[in-house]
């Protein structure tokens, strides 16, 4: 009897794991709309065309499948041009998670460079979402596509940003909240790479006479400091502007997007 129970449990667990793996590749359709970038010389809204977005961030297990098929992206084999030395540092080996394997399997993969994330998405016929797409999808809370008027929603995001992420094991995907579009974990789990993260210019690198600097720093930081909503987005912009494509960061993961093909 006991044996049966064990077998049943194994089967159930296996089914569950399989379901999760296939679910992880699921995408939600985000109907487009307009999005007003936080820092922009234009006051005009950016038009976001309809697109598909992964329901979950990419997990360690999914990334493992990818590097099994694509040797050049394995830890220890990836070229310095495409990843720094922190690449997949939370894994024990090229194809090995190590002692935390149970915890890691369905947790979002982190410590991956922009190049690796881009290569992963391309491998599955997808791409990274643009900043505008990501921010547009991230406006939604559980019930509304645009929760920017909901101060409670932004307070939750700020509260998450305020928690230090070091020494804290990442939770599994699907452990925060599912938004209006059916997309999980846009806030509260990991920061995510975007296709054009490098569009956030910082003072040292842009034209010194450009008004962009002013827009990036004075405009947002000073004028809108009371606005919690902008503060959350400001944090994300600041984070993006500090990144380089080869960086691998312990709380930075990704998910993929795709164009909607109209028949």
């Amino acid at each position: 009897m006991k044996n049966w129970l064990v077998i049943l449990t194994v089967i159930a667990a296996g089914t569950f794991a399989n379901a999760q793996v296939s679910d992880q590749a699921m995408m939600a359709t985000i109907r487009g709309g307009t999005y007003v970038p936080l820092y922009s010389l234009d006051t005009a809204a950016t038009i976001v065309k309809p697109f598909m977005l992964d329901v979950y961030p990419v997990t360690n297990l999914q990334f493992l499948e990818f590097v099994k098929k694509n040797e050049s992206w394995q830890k220890g084999k990836v070229k310095q041009l495409f990843a720094d030395s922190s690449y997949l540092r939370h894994w024990d080996g090229a194809l090995l998670f190590g002692k935390d394997s149970v915890k890691l399997a369905h947790a979002p993969v982190v410590n991956v460079s922009w190049y690796a994330a881009k290569a992963y998405c391309e491998c599955y016929g997808k791409r990274l979402p643009t900043v505008a797409e990501w921010e547009f999808a991230a406006l939604a809370n559980e019930t509304k596509p645009n929760a920017s008027a909901d101060s409670g929603f932004y307070q939750r995001i700020i509260d998450w940003y305020a928690k230090p992420s070091h020494n804290r094991a990442l939770k599994n995907i699907g452990s925060t909240f599912k938004n209006y579009y059916g997309v999980w974990d846009m806030h509260g789990l990991v920061w995510e790479w975007t296709q054009d993260f490098n569009s956030a210019l910082t003072s040292g690198e842009s034209r010194s006479d450009s008004s962009l600097d002013k827009d990036l720093f004075c405009g947002a930081g000073a004028v809108n400091a009371k606005n919690l909503k902008n503060y959350a987005a400001f944090m994300r912009y600041a984070m993006r502007s500090s990144l380089k494509a080869k960086y691998s960061v312990g709380n930075l993961g990704f998910r993929c997007a795709k164009d909607v093909h109209t028949p």
Partner: peptide, 11 residues
């Protein structure tokens, strides 16, 4: 990204 160049469409 390889060349550390940042760019953004503007008005």
């Amino acid at each position: 990204n390889v060349l550390d160049v940042r760019f953004k469409a503007s008005k």
